[in-house]
Design a protein around this nucleic acid. Sequence first.
DNA 1: GTGATTTACTAGGACTTCCGAGTATTTGAA
DNA 2: TTCAAATACTCGGAAGTCCTAGTAAATCAC
Lengths: 177, 177
Amino acid sequence: MGRSSRLAFDPIDRAGELWSTHFGDPLSMKVVTSVMRVQQLLLAELDAILKPFDITFARYEVLVLLTFSRNGSLPLSKIGERLMVHPTSVTNAIDRLERQGLVRRVPDASDRRRTLAELTPSGKRLTKRATRALTEADFGITGVPEHAQRQLYDLLRDLRASAGDFPHPDEDVSRPA
Amino acid sequence: MGRSSRLAFDPIDRAGELWSTHFGDPLSMKVVTSVMRVQQLLLAELDAILKPFDITFARYEVLVLLTFSRNGSLPLSKIGERLMVHPTSVTNAIDRLERQGLVRRVPDASDRRRTLAELTPSGKRLTKRATRALTEADFGITGVPEHAQRQLYDLLRDLRASAGDFPHPDEDVSRPA
DNA sequence: GTGATTTACTAGGACTTCCGAGTATTTGAA
DNA sequence: TTCAAATACTCGGAAGTCCTAGTAAATCAC
């Protein structure tokens, strides 16, 4: 893993020091490296929490999305949109979930290009239990105070906004350009 | 990609709303999802910047680390430690870099278990150029003001600290327990 | 000094992500 | 209406991450 063998110092800070002696101001490099590292830590933690349920966080996200949908089913394309991943990633996830009996593929009569993914009863039960486990573990960020979580969310949201991840509130979507 | 097809709303906010009606307080879930998403966006941006040089960010990190080392070479194990990735990930990266002629494997005479990865002249040149491209693009976070970057770095550092990512300053490493 | 343990690297496999390309179906335009 | 363009899904492949397990070499203990 990346986590277990801990150094006697913070490798990101160290990299920043070396960076500044070679290249210049390391702030943006440190920010980006930190994001990568935190993602790595969180994902490892989440997957560890979900391991007893034999799913990964990627597949858990699909299950939750289906739980939120009105009738427990969604076209694969919608899943990809909402989760912001490539269509082939959805195919891959649904393949595995279907093999595990947690989800079923159902043809969509109203548009025969589409395939719906539908939660099975077993899928619904597992999602409940997995969600309990994740919320009890606070998604792997217990120890981070609430105000810090809020600040973090806001800053990340600003970053996403400046990367064009979602429309600005003052952008009129109905009347483009 | 996840980026191109933008929804008319923020999927993370929306997931938070749905989450709260089904399960409860979505703050930690929103924070974690945001980290995942930002990592995805940044990595895509960095890889796009590096595409003309025919390397990925993962391989770039290896090259920079070698640049920082005294003689342009390091044992693979050190690389894994510093980059906080699994030994097999290093093997994989070095395999590719070696195939590209950017790095050379050199046996370590002082410890014959070890293999050193050494920058080739071509590897050194490419690292310079790639670094220029990345710094000019501010590592994909142009548009994020400096104070926000600082706050973000500090919050992520706190999060890493609470996950035990590095020793606390008041922890005496030389005298364990 | 010899044997057990630890360390370093690699091989193979699972999982996720992306991309490009191909097939089917629906929509839209002439 | 008929043909072109857009949309939905899948297949195969590349790249990254991790894990388990195996071999070789160094270190530690007795």
